[in-house]
Each structure stands twice: as C-alpha cells, then as structure tokens.
Design a binder for these strands. Structure first.
Lengths: 208, 208
DNA sequence: CATTCCAGTAAACAGGTGTTCGCCGACCTT
DNA sequence: AAGGTCGGCGAACACCTGTTTACTGGAATG
C-alpha cells in the first residue's frame, strides 16, 4: 500500500461514468427496458463484456441513475424550506431551485419522468422510495406549524404529497419546454399560482 | 353489394382487437418501445407479417391504444360535472367514477401512466393532446361560475390542470394498489381530501 | 358463376441481441 | 523485481428482431 496511486480505481470510475452518461444520452428518445447492452457499450467504445464489470444488468444501472438523479434533491429542498419562512418566499425559492436543477440536469429529469412508471420494476420502486423520502422531508418542514394547529400526521402527509407531486410535474414540464425560455417562464408562473392556491387551501383547512 | 354479410370486416376487427388486447397484456411488465412485433403476433397466434394489415408500426398501435384508453373519459367527466353541483358532491362522484374505471380497465390505465412520458413520441403526444382536452372539459365546467367572479381564463385553466393532474395521479395510484381494497380506500380518502383542499384554495383565491 | 379483393401465411433476408469464455496486460502489492 | 489482482478484449454461443416477398383461400362483387 506504499506506492498506491489510485489510478486503477480512477479508471474504473471513469468507465462507469461513461456508461452512465452514455445511457442518459440514449435514454433521451427511448426507455430503459428497450436500451440494449451492446448499444450502450458501442457508444462508449468498450467491449460488451466490460459492462458486467460495473453493473449486474440494465436494471442495476437504472437504479444507480435514480440515486444520482434524486439523491441530491432531498438535501436541497430541506435547506430551502429551513431557511425561508412564509409561503410565497418558499414557493419562489423552490421554483427557482427546481428550474435551475432542470436546466443543469435535463437528462436526469427526463429519465425520472420516463421511468417513474416505466417497465423496469426495481427502477420504478427506487424512484418511488426516493420520492417518498422527499415527501417525508416536506412533511417534516410543515409539521412544526401544523401539528400544534390540530393537523393529524396523515393530513400533513397528504398535503406534502400535493406539494411534491406538483414539483415533479412542474420539473417535467420545464424539461419538455427544452430551450424555449418564454414557455419556461409561463410554466413557472402557472406553477407558482398552483402552489399558492394549495397553500391558500391549507390555511383554511381546519375550518372545514 | 347484394349478399354482403360483413364477415370479412368482422374478422378483421376481431384480429385487430386481439392485437390490442395482447399488447395491453404484454405491456403490463414492459414499455411500448421494447414491445416486439414478433413477440406480439406470437401471443396472438398470427404470422408476423399480418401485423402490417392493421398497423403501420408499434407507435401506430400505441396511438390507437391511447384513443381507446382516454377517448371515453372526456364525455364521462363532462356528464358528471354537468349533473352535480357543489364541490363535495362533484368530488365524490368523480372519485367513484375514476375508481370504477380503473377497476374495469386497469391495463389501459397502466398503459397511459407508462407511456405518458415514455419513449415513443407519437404516443406521448397523443396522450398529451387527450389530457389537454380533458383539462378543457374541466375548465369549461368551472368557467361559468369563475369568469363572472373575475377569474381570467388562464387562471381557470391553471385550476383545471391542478384538478386533472390530481385525478391522473390518483388513477395511477389505484392501479398500483391492484387488488388491495384497504389500500384503495386509503388512496380514495387522501385524494378526496386533496381535491377538497384545492377547492378550498379556489374559494379564497380572489382575496389574494 | 366468374372475378376481384384482401387478411393471413411461410420463407428468407440481413441484421441485432444478452451472456459466457479464456486471455492479455497494466496497475497494485509484498 | 516477482506475483497477484482485475478492468477490458475478442470470439463464439444460441437466439430473436423488423421487413419484404410471392403465395393461398375464403369472402365480396357484378
């Protein structure tokens, strides 16, 4: 362990990254269940057999993509909600963050949208689990205010689901708008209104 | 045209139906872009070439499935919203109808959920267009009350999108619950609350 | 009744697929 | 400097793919 340079591990990481990136590229106009192993390795420029050094199968690669796509989002949302107070500020900040995230990682978002109900069970379940954690995060952010006001935990969660689902839908819409900046702004405006309307409903909930 | 029995057309319709049904079955655990022509005709029991007598390609079959899956829904929603008045009644009636529809056509719903953002562009666009018409329908049902109250058309539409999106999400959740009746009831309860919360937000919208 | 029509067939084409095998050779260890 | 580790390679395995071709036989036509 004296003159270890980590060259070996670095090369392996690089190959793995190349596979993931090539997959994200190919998945722009097809779904995971139709993505071929040879098709993928051909794009990367490696032998088909080399794939197995990194992933058991395509589903395995898909799960890795899910973690990489949704893993960072959780902390991001938590930070935003913790720092801000008041609905409008929170909504504006989240919208900004989501828009920026989609702008930076469009292929990841496309992948999530496509495979959320896609044909590969392990991937579907991984996405479901990850989005569930996001709902928990949002629920936890609202609980301190709502629980004392008499909200049962299940109602807090149903609210959080509403928020998260809208975020996901909006992110998908952003992605589909591609480069069209006018369209993106229109989507953002609509989404802000929708989140605001939900927040309005939340404030009058206990009266019903 | 004297002794025409329509036997010919009837046989063709039957074959076409067999293809569509077999496709719905195979699409339960894969997506359209990975569904093979031979795989499909093998299940039906016909020669691969016979497929071309009915559809140009798989995308064409997919679009046909979209129309059959979503075509009837439009009129259904219109009728329900026209007959009822008051949020809770409307919500209960729609939830009942959606639950029943999913119970009767689970494979169709799965197909729509899977291909809504799937890898086949024409199918994606067909679903988008059909859901757009549904949004129009809902918007038209609310416009008579909201427009006189000062709602601009774009806001009516953003509300309709909120409602429709929630319906689609709920339908998907119903389908994923499969046979579990307890889970279905839980989903219905949550969805009713969410729709109610949105309606609550709607009633207080003009104040903001 | 002869004829046209046309859904469905079988066969062949030119590819493509996932997976396994033994092997090489550069990195890492001792 | 010798030997082990392991990411990547090339070849072979058995099989599946979409599409075109010329054809058959029962229904529709006049």
């Amino acid at each position: 362990m004296s003159h270890t340079c980590g060259i070996r591990e670095a090369r392996k990481r690089k190959s793995r990254r190349a596979l993931l990136d090539a997959a994200l590229g190919l998945l722009e106009d097809q779904s995971l269940s139709s993505l071929g192993l040879r098709e993928l390795t051909r794009v990367v420029g490696m032998a088909p057999a080399a794939f197995y050094r990194h992933f058991r199968d395509m589903a395995d690669l898909g799960v890795a993509l899910v973690e990489e796509s949704l893993g960072s989002l959780q902390g991001m949302i938590r930070a935003i909600l913790a720092e801000r107070d008041g609905d409008e500020e929170r909504i504006d900040a989240v919208m900004e963050a989501v828009a920026e995230h989609v702008r930076r990682h469009p292929t990841h978002i496309r992948f999530i949208a496509r495979e959320r109900h896609g044909g590969v069970r392990p991937v579907r379940e991984a996405i479901g689990a990850e989005l569930g954690l996001l709902v928990d995060e949002v629920a936890a952010a609202f609980a301190p205010r709502l629980t004392p006001a008499g909200w049962p935990p299940e109602d807090v969660r149903m609210l959080a689901e509403l928020y998260v689902d809208r975020m996901v839908t909006t992110a998908t819409a952003f992605m589909e708008a591609q480069e069209d900046e006018r369209e993106r702004e229109r989507i953002a405006d609509t989404a802000r209104k929708q989140l605001l309307l939900i927040s309005l409903g939340r404030r009058h909930w206990r009266d019903a």
